[in-house]
Every structure is written in C-alpha cells, then in structure tokens.
Design a protein around this nucleic acid. Structure first.
Ligand SMILES: [Mn+2]
Ligand SMILES: [Mn+2]
Ligand SMILES: [Zn+2]
Ligand SMILES: [Zn+2]
Lengths: 174, 174
DNA sequence: ATCGAAATTGATACTCATTCTCAATTGAGA
DNA sequence: TCTCAATTGAGAATGAGTATCAATTTCGAT
C-alpha cells in the first residue's frame, strides 16, 4: 500500500544519492492519494491546496512550484511507481504503476471519464503480431475514445429534443 | 487514386462555399504524394521545396506559410482524406484515410520506423470490451513502441562490443 | 550541534508546436 | 469587370514542458 510505495521511492532516492525533501513528500502523497490519471496541474493543485489547509503558519513563503512537480513526477516515474499516459489532448497524465498491472483505457469524449480494461486475448493477439513483424515491444497502449454509457444516453435525449423541435417548426411553417 | 482524392476534396470545398487556392492544391498534392506519416513540418518542407524547384519565376514573393499548412490539413482531415495520428512525441502526424482501412502501429524507438498492422481478432476482442463496458467507440488506436528487427540487432551488437571492451579494461586493470 | 559541499527549489526565461490576429490579397459568382 | 467574402503569410500569442540560476536546504562528516 501507500507506505510500501513511499519506501520504494525513498530507496530510489537514496540509491542515487539524492535528497529527501518536504516537496517530494507532498507530491508523492498527493499522487498516491487518488487512483486518478492526474496531470501535473492536478498534482500541483492537490499539493498546494493541502498545504494551505494543513499548514496555517503565517510565515509560509510560497507553495510548491510547477517545475518541482514536473521534476518530482519524473523521479516517481523513474522509480517505477508511476506510468505516464498520453491521451493526445496535449497534457501528460500520471497513473499508478506499482501494484497496478498493465491495462488499456476507454476515454469518454463527453465527460472525460476514464475506464481501465485488460484482456488476456488481446495480449495473445499482440504477441502474435510482434512475432510476425519481428518487433521487440517496450511499451504498448490501446486507447479507445468514444462515449460512455451516460454520455451516449444524454446524447440520444438531445437528439430526441431536437427532432421534436424540428417537427414543431415544420408544422408552424404551414 | 490521387485524382479521386482530389475530387473528394474539391467537392468538400465547394459544398462549404470555400475557395480553391493554389496553396490548397500544393498541400493536398504533397500529402497525397507519399504514404508516410507526415508532420506539418514535413508537409511544409515538401510544398516549399517542390515550389522552389518547379516555379523558377523570380518574382516569387514567398512560400506557403505554416499557418496555411495547419489550416489546410484540418480541412483535408475533415474532408475524410486524412487521419491525424498522435505518437506522443509532441507532434501530430497525418496519414491517408481514403482507401486505407483502419490499422494500428508499431513505432520503433530506435529509428522511428512505423509499421502498420491490423487484426481481425483484435477487432473482435475490442467489440467484446465495448459491450462489456457499454461504451460507444468513436475512434481507437493500438500503439506498440519498441525496437524493429534492425534496431534490435544493432543494439545487441553494441552490447557485445561493450562487453568485449569491459573485459579488456578488466584485464588491463590487473 | 556545526559545517560545507552538493542537491534542490521557485521564479522566470525559454522552447517548440500549434493557434490566433489582422492587413493585404485573391477567388469566383453576378 | 466588380464586389465581397474567403484566404493568405507574418508575426504575435498560447500553453505544456524544460533550462537556468541565485538562494535555500539536506545530510554526512566533523
Ligand atoms: Mn489507467
Ligand atoms: Mn498508419
Ligand atoms: Zn462520458
Ligand atoms: Zn528501428
């Protein structure tokens, strides 16, 4: 769980002769506090909100900077705790890697909801492709964009409204 | 073939009350001239190189601008001729859509080579996933990053060289 | 507990792909 | 040919992420 992850990061830091800092602790805790796919901005907000709530000392100079968030997320990724995911909207996201087996994503174009899935059959098909092309995979990611159940239903309701409206307008035209 | 594609673009342009221009012709021709996955920069270069080679009039003011390349590739994409692909290296690429059935990609981290593949079995697995999650797919893309056959082989040769070198240094240490 | 070299930090400047703005130019229907 | 909306290129603007650097902090050695 969380303490194991913190241990892993701590080990990683020491092995490299790096230093433990309050900022790194805050950022790692924020990252570990959810199961979401977080952007650097998300993490920056989480960190600085939690700081301003918890630390009410009046001599607080400034929050954790964006550069530190990016730098630390790189370390967390390199330590094996995080994986960077790119959904193609121009922002990187980070998700848990430790204790979370590899999986793929369904991304809703309506509400942004992200659903994870994995499939043994898909792994087998992939293996077959790799052999066919003599390709050595280092990473792989299947992304499916579309509409989640909720968004699909609301879209259909929208359509129905519009078609009623159109019918009405047509009658008024007579 | 190419003329069909140009006809489709022409129709698209007229339907919308847009105008045909020399720039749009050049950009579309450049895009159609290869089967590659082109960046806006690639297309810009293709267009301006071909212009300076073919059109040697000395009163040529300037080449086609980047903004026009981006704007026109958006039109070409909307017309259904192109598809935008995002490999996650920070640049968008465009590939043929017309006459090119949907497929996925193997991307070599060594030389950048892109190999296309498709798999009926994978489509079936995907369909199963979509049903399971009640998700309505609008687009989907499986990307596999790694090393192509060539790059994998050269990497192994590198390894062998290094191991020889290390052995030699070890002996010299004695 | 103190010291000091080395690592870290936040602010800010910068990069780079892409989009926006706008004055000048061009296309095509009347 | 006229006219006017669409288009263009240059350059400014944007936005995510990175590099720089002086000031601060960490932590092992004293
Ligand atoms: Mn995930
Ligand atoms: Mn392709
Ligand atoms: Zn949704
Ligand atoms: Zn290669």
């Amino acid at each position: 769980m969380e303490s194991e992850a913190k241990q892993i990061f701590d080990d990683y830091i020491r092995e490299r002769g790096l230093k433990g800092t309050a900022q790194r602790d805050l950022i790692l805790s924020a990252f570990l506090s959810t199961e979401d796919h977080l952007t650097a901005e998300d993490i920056h907000r989480l960190v600085n909100d939690s700081v301003s709530h918890n630390d009410f000392s009046s001599d607080k100079k400034h929050g954790v900077g964006f550069a530190t968030v990016y730098r630390t997320m790189k370390l967390i990724t390199d330590s094996g705790l995080a994986r960077e995911v790119i959904f193609g909207d121009g922002v990187s996201r980070f998700e848990h890697k430790y204790g979370h087996p590899h999986h793929h994503h369904l991304i809703c174009n309506g509400c942004g909801e992200i659903t994870e899935f994995s499939s043994q059959k898909m792994n087998e098909v992939e293996k077959h492709i790799l052999k066919k092309y003599s390709f050595k995979a280092e990473s792989h990611h299947f992304k499916i964009f579309g509409l989640c159940k909720n968004c699909e239903e609301s879209r259909n309701q929208e359509k129905q409204k519009k078609s009623k409206k159109n019918k009405k307008m047509y009658q008024e035209d007579k």
